[in-house]
Design a protein around this nucleic acid. Structure first.
Lengths: 205, 205
DNA sequence: GCCGATATTGTACAATCGTCCAACAACAGC
DNA sequence: GCTGTTGTTGGACGATTGTACAATATCGGC
């Protein structure tokens, strides 16, 4: 007759880790590094206990590393839907400069994590790995359009240009959404690409 | 016979404020927001007392605001030497993507401050003011080159493109200086500009 | 129903945080 | 040299930080 309602739910380690990463990203989004706190993260993870992060990740810093790889994975995933490695330039422009992704929360999270990349060698290595992956995809997408044509600059150079442009526009728009509209920044991307690749703008009716 | 060597030096308020801003920027550069601490800042300001920041600025947050405007002033100053409002595009490329300015310290400082811009309305206002100023200068520099010629896009659009590109390249290079050389990023800027303005690259011998 | 592996809790801990404030000292003006 | 203004000191304060660790609870396998 002891109905015994459990005081807490037990999760498998991988699932719990995922929950904590999720909570960590949420905290980064609304408080930056200062918001990335053991107490707040556990609170955000459904009121878990303070000991959990140390238990599952060893330290707060390692949770941050996990958050970084997750965030990067998602970014790449959004730019290449359906899990394929295939990406089109318009799709990337649409996804990375979407209304959702150019939010102040997204900005705060990335700024905080980038700030750590410069400090943490492990994170730096991870960053480099992802960046190369990202660049490779863009080069591939460019080649699909150029289709063997000789461009004014190499595909790799144009890819670097494109990535930096997207990052810069994303940053400026996050900082001040009223100053730069979504249409503005997306158009700017096409201005850049068409200067090298010719007309590629998808007809929007 | 009381030789009386002073225990500390008294500064005029403006001079002391400047010292604290300097120390604040130094702390931001090597520790981001986490390094921006009353204790560390005072230590960096020649071992001043902990009460000084509250006394001169009212709060730590207001010191941060002062740091932001100083950093932005210096950035604009570096891009337009001699104190003139006049700026040339090559000069900006040279200054903002210089070896010195693409350091991890510079990165950490800006990331930390931008993270606050998204939170603090006062800082946001300041940011907007400076950005408009910055944009105006770039438009002016573009007009000097286009010289009335009709471009593929408006001078304002190209200015936005340019600023975002510089920011993006600056960011990527700060994050991983070994991946993107100074020559790479500066060349990328010219690739962009020449696509719209025709040859403008200064002959480097 | 019990057991054991293991996920979870919650406190203790020392360190650090930002702010406040009363006492103090430097230095210009007299 | 004294005095008044004002810049400076440094400790008190409560809140919060990340980590460690022993105690506890859950839940699958029997």
């Amino acid at each position: 007759m002891t109905a015994h309602t459990p005081k807490y739910r037990r999760y498998e380690a991988p699932e719990r880790r995922e929950m904590l990463v999720e909570a960590g990203l949420a905290c980064l989004a609304d408080g930056g590094v200062s918001g990335f706190t053991i107490d707040r993260i556990c609170e955000a993870a459904g009121g878990a206990s303070r000991g959990l992060i140390t238990h599952h990740f060893g330290s707060k810093q390692q949770l941050l590393r996990a958050c970084y790889t997750t965030a990067y994975d998602r970014m790449l995933g959004a730019a290449a839907p359906g899990g394929s490695a295939q990406t089109s330039l318009p799709q990337m422009i649409e996804a990375l400069l979407s209304e959702d992704y150019t939010s102040q929360g997204t900005l705060r999270a990335w700024l905080a994590m980038w700030g750590e990349v410069a400090n943490d060698p492990d994170l730096m290595q991870e960053h480099r790995r992802y960046y190369d992956h990202y660049l490779g995809r863009v080069v591939q997408a460019i080649r699909e359009i150029s289709d063997g044509r000789m461009l004014a600059i190499s595909e790799e150079s144009l890819a670097t240009l494109f990535i930096s442009m997207v990052d810069g526009l994303w940053l400026e728009r996050c900082l001040d959404p009223e100053r730069l509209s979504r249409a503005d920044v997306q158009q700017a991307c096409y201005d850049l690409l068409e200067a090298f690749l010719g007309p590629i703008r998808p007809q929007t009716g």
